[in-house]
């Protein structure tokens, strides 16, 4: 969980991992190998990527969007079809109803599910998610967060997740990385985070507490 205000470098950090941006200094290692040792196309197909609003291809049906990476990887047609059905069910989109629709014909929450299904399709061991639930209404967001938490427990993948929403970080994160002005301020377990006296963390915790108190009163 990368947590921090806008412009703190969360998205940049994410893009360094799949080499969308080159590192200006230092070295990025994925699975212990420096990026220079990876074939960049192989690296990216090894890493699922989900962003706000999905970034779906508007000229592809939901099915083709989800099938993208498996087809790039030349899976045979049967295996692609089976896998697309499987991940679409996994994210709560019955293929019979949604497979042939275009992104413009479904809701924002459904697009987000498609984006997640696309990221999961080739079963990559690593997932990068950049505020995937950011543009959704609060009800849909909390529903998707819950579902994603269950998925995460089942799938057991390495997930790097960018958010500026503290409760999302607490709900979904195993570790919370607090960033500010391009630097890591600290790395915390959710419990440590809540109890931390650090100046970089306290405002977040106070903000969550204030909301919680308002709700109780």
């Amino acid at each position: 969980m990368l947590l921090g205000p806008s412009g703190s470098g969360k998205t940049t950090t994410l893009k360094l991992i799949n080499n969308l941006l080159p590192a200006s200094a230092g070295q990025v290692r994925v699975e212990g190998r420096a990026l220079a040792e990876w074939d960049v196309i192989q690296l990216r197909r090894h890493i699922g990527y989900a962003i706000q609003e999905g970034g779906l291809f508007p000229h592809y049906t939901v099915w083709k969007n989800v099938a993208l990476v498996p087809r790039l990887e030349n899976w045979d047609a049967k295996r692609v079809a089976a896998r697309v059905d499987e991940v679409m069910n996994m994210v709560g989109l019955p293929p019979g109803e949604f497979a042939q629709r275009y992104p413009a014909q479904i809701s924002g929450g459904q697009r987000q599910r498609v984006g997640l299904a696309r990221a999961l399709a080739a079963d990559p061991p690593i997932l990068l998610m950049d505020e995937p639930f950011g543009a959704l209404d609060p009800l849909t967001r909390s529903e998707l967060q819950k579902e994603f938490k269950h998925l995460q427990q089942r799938l057991n993948k390495t997930v790097v997740f960018v958010t500026h929403d503290v409760s999302e970080a607490l709900l979904l994160g195993d570790r919370i990385v607090v960033m500010d002005s391009g630097r890591i301020e600290g790395i915390y377990l959710p419990k440590e985070f809540l109890a931390s006296p650090d100046a970089g963390v306290k405002p977040y915790v106070d903000a969550v507490r204030t909301t919680a108190q308002l709700l109780q009163s």
């Binding site: 969308l20 990216r44 890493i47 609003e53 970034g55 779906l56 291809f57 000229h59 993208l68 990476v69």
Partner: peptide
């Protein structure tokens, strides 16, 4: 921009990006 970025992040090669995403759109 997000569509192009997603395409690159999914591991499309330059040629695939052109023929499957940019030219059709």
């Amino acid at each position: 921009a997000p569509v192009r970025e997603a395409a690159i992040a999914m591991g499309l090669t330059g040629r695939q990006l052109l023929w499957q995403v940019e030219l059709p759109l």
